[in-house]
Amino acid sequence: MSEFLEILTHGRRFKAAVKDLSVDELRDLAAKLDKIIVERESMEQEEQLAMAARNAKIEEIRQQMEAVGLSIDDLGGVAVKAVSKKRAPRPAKYQIEVAGELIQWTGQGRMPTVFKNALNNGRTMEDFLI
């Protein structure tokens, strides 16, 4: 909790913090706090009304399902999202042999250094096609 909130919620610390304020300033502060309280209460009341409307709609749908003979379990198979299949890795399009090691590349993404070096030495990508 911040220091401000600690002072605000502790009786003696709050009294010490506002001791230099005049009565008019204290009344102004109290009016601002009352306004905040009223706003917060109205927000909570709106949330409660929205939740009540939501719960009523859920109950209405539940009763409709019951009348038709459906249960939540019946919806489980329909509501489950299909599992996406992972794509197979791309086949290698280019390969080069360096020091007895075979290095392959799909042609996508950053070009491996061994291919760059070979291109700089005058070879072409067609030389590396599989």
Rank of each mutant, 00 (worst) to 15 (best):
E101R: 15
I58P: 10
N120D: 06
A17I: 05
I7A: 01
A30K: 08
K93M: 11
V68T: 10
G69I: 11
E126L: 03
E60F: 11
K85M: 00
A92I: 05
L33W: 07
L29H: 02
R123Q: 14
I37D: 11
E41I: 12
K93E: 09
A56R: 13
K32R: 13
S71Y: 09
I96G: 00
R40I: 13
D34H: 07
E41K: 15
A99E: 10
E3R: 02
L8M: 10
L119R: 07
E41C: 10
I58T: 14
K35P: 02
Q45I: 10
K86N: 05
A52I: 10
K15F: 04
G122I: 03
A53Q: 05
G107R: 02
P89W: 03
L49V: 11
K32N: 09
Q48L: 14
L8S: 07
S42C: 06
V23Q: 10
R87G: 01
K19F: 01
N121I: 04
L21S: 01
E101M: 05
I7Q: 00
T9F: 03
L102C: 13
W105I: 13
Q108S: 14
G77P: 00
L75N: 04
A53E: 06
E59R: 13
V78A: 11
M125T: 04
A52K: 15
E101A: 12
G69N: 05
R123M: 13
A50V: 15
A50S: 14
I7C: 00
Q104I: 10
R40P: 01
H10Y: 02
A118S: 11
A118T: 05
S22E: 04
V114R: 01
T106E: 00
I130H: 12
F14P: 03
T106L: 01
S22Q: 05
L129D: 03
N121G: 10
R62C: 14
A92K: 15
M125K: 00
I36K: 12
R123G: 04
A17N: 07
G122C: 02
M43Q: 13
M51V: 14
S42R: 08
G69F: 00
E47D: 13
A118G: 04
A99T: 15
N117C: 06
E44P: 05
I7F: 01
E126R: 02
S22T: 15
R27W: 01
R27C: 11
S84E: 07
D34K: 06
L49H: 06
Q45M: 12
A16Y: 03
D74Q: 04
E97L: 06
E66K: 14
E101N: 13
I37T: 11
